[in-house]
Design a protein around this nucleic acid. Structure first.
Lengths: 190, 190
DNA sequence: GTCACTTTTTGCCATTTGGCAAATGATTTC
DNA sequence: GAAATCATTTGCCAAATGGCAAAAAGTGAC
């Protein structure tokens, strides 16, 4: 599983064998069952997490107490990497496994050790962070100006493997529509 | 005007007098008239721009040819700083002045010279980039699940100084609603 | 297979928002 | 100040979406 993480990182910059050994030594594995939380709103994000397999969602409670899904991540994503190095690391959203998940995690300290030991690490991580943030931004931002059917079609494009794996209620909430509207939209499309 | 830029940067990290002199030497000023474009979709972003005064909007054309406003920036923002260092610097959106604007600009090369000359520069810029991206993301992403009135109220919160300075058509497009809906919403609120 | 449980679909109607065109208001130009 | 132009509001009706509850379909345990 660590190989998968190394392969992911290597897309963004080269690592020597020594460096890989160092990273592997710091890494630990984490499994989450469907429904479990990786991180909770109001708490501080304490570790870097790489999703090796499974699906998580980012969600929050709005002021009416509704639980709203803001985003999905599937395998090969660093979870909320940008949050770990902001001044305020308190989360406003939670991260929940919606299928069984396997992760590689690093404590914040180990991650910083790696950063100090490996020249170019920060630049690699910055590229990943930028890619993740702009991807989330593009996918969410364009939803605003679309009607419900187009939103759903975009969801299918953006997350082609997810549609049959997760409850429709999460998808509806991600799209900002009700579950019954989504159901009707699906009927019209198929 | 360069002082304003230095003050902005200094929020994110300290600079010596020497470093400030270097930055000032590389900076140049740019004025845009209302309606002029700072950058256009399909072209490559060639410079770093700091908006010292005025308002710009980010907009694009959807597949029906509609022009859609995706975001606004007012003074004290680095414009699309994250885009300048992606592999593909081709813009999918344009940046248009919607009031008269004053900017400080740096060519990509000068910016990289500064980066090489000033230790810690990259880390300062990274903080700014992260702050900008997460701010845009938070503001846009939450719109999806709100109704039109709530969207407009959030716009007023997020951009308190903008409401009376820019055409309602831009605001409506930013909110993903029609101009007539926005007009009715405004009537109900006031 | 049956039961209990959860998820998804459907029907009915209310509400919100869109589409279009005309009217009003604001701004600029001469 | 009048004319021309642009921005905003309004009226009318249609279309899209929401709210609620019941029905149907799917899932897992025994």
């Amino acid at each position: 599983m660590i190989d998968q993480f190394i392969a992911y990182i290597s897309q963004f910059g080269n690592l020597t064998r020594q460096q890989i050994t160092l990273i592997a030594a710091k890494a630990s594995e984490l499994e989450l069952r469907k429904g479990e939380y990786y991180a909770e709103a109001g708490k501080v994000l304490k570790q870097v997490g790489f999703l090796a397999s499974g699906i998580v969602r980012i969600c929050y409670h709005d002021n009416k107490g509704e639980e709203i899904t803001r985003y999905f991540f599937n395998e090969n994503h660093l979870l909320f990497i940008w949050k770990l190095f902001e001044e305020d690391r308190t989360l406003s959203e939670c991260i929940q496994a919606i299928t069984d998940c396997k992760l590689i995690v690093f404590s914040r300290k180990d991650w910083m050790d790696i950063s100090n030991a490996i020249t170019g690490w920060d630049s690699i991580v910055q590229k990943i962070e930028r890619k993740n943030l702009t991807e989330v931004l593009d996918r969410r931002a364009t939803l605003v100006s679309e009607d419900a059917t187009t939103r759903y079609l975009k969801f299918l494009e953006n997350f082609p493997t997810l549609a049959n794996q997760i409850p429709l209620s999460y998808i509806a909430s991600y799209l900002g529509i009700t579950q019954s509207s989504l159901s009707r939209i699906r009927k019209n499309i198929c």
